[in-house]
């Protein structure tokens, strides 16, 4: 009877441990801290650091976009919060926006972030009620970023000098 119990325990333990190993290799954490974050995500208890988020928002409003992105990266290390990812995308948009040309690298980063936000949002729809923003939905921001990364005849239109940043 005792051997049987040990066998059952062994089977369950081996399966759980093997599952943990497969999970580690699938998520590829880069540090013990990331292991802890990924575990929180897997357990469904993951929450962003609200204080860092607010700091980042303050920086964003002062147009310190790079610092804001760094703070948001710290607030949402697992990149699992749609609202934070939306703001990261927005920060990339505002930082990369130029009257003459757009910064392609930043727009691509922004596009990745906004795609994450859309994927994480329930039903793929995300609306952020922030009066300081001119684009409130992730779809709008995505379209703007996509247009920025596309090249065409409109790029040589001199009237684009009069366009406004959103």
């Amino acid at each position: 009877m005792q051997t049987r119990l040990i066998q059952i325990t062994g089977i369950i333990w081996t399966l759980v441990y093997a599952g943990i190993i497969v999970w580690i290799y699938a998520t590829e954490p880069r540090s013990f801290k990331e292991v802890a974050t990924n575990s929180q995500v897997a357990a469904g208890v993951y929450e962003i650091n609200q204080e860092k988020f607010n700091n980042a928002l303050a920086l964003f409003r002062r147009e310190q976009f790079r610092a804001a992105r760094d703070e948001w990266a710290g607030a949402d290390p697992a990149q699992k919060d749609p609202r934070t990812q939306f703001y990261v995308g927005y920060a990339c948009y505002r930082e990369g926006w130029g009257r003459v040309y757009y910064d392609d690298a930043l727009f691509k980063l922004g596009l990745e972030a906004v795609n994450r936000a859309i994927a994480l949002a329930p039903n793929g729809t995300l609306v952020v009620d922030d009066p300081n923003l001119q684009m409130h939905s992730a779809a709008e921001l995505k379209a703007e970023l996509e247009q920025g990364t596309e090249t065409g005849w409109k790029d040589v239109n001199p009237l684009k000098l009069f366009r406004q940043r959103k």
Binding site: G10, W13, T14, I21, I24, Y25, E28, P29, R30, S31
Partner: peptide, 29 residues
């Protein structure tokens, strides 16, 4: 036989693919 041995083998499996990046000191699986 049923608990220690699989644990040892799986731990060897876990560590066998683990490297530490020379510059960033981050895990590389």
């Amino acid at each position: 036989h049923f608990i220690v041995l699989p644990t040892i083998l799986l731990t060897a499996g876990l560590l066998g693919g683990l490297r530490i990046d020379g510059q960033t000191r981050q895990f590389v699986f």
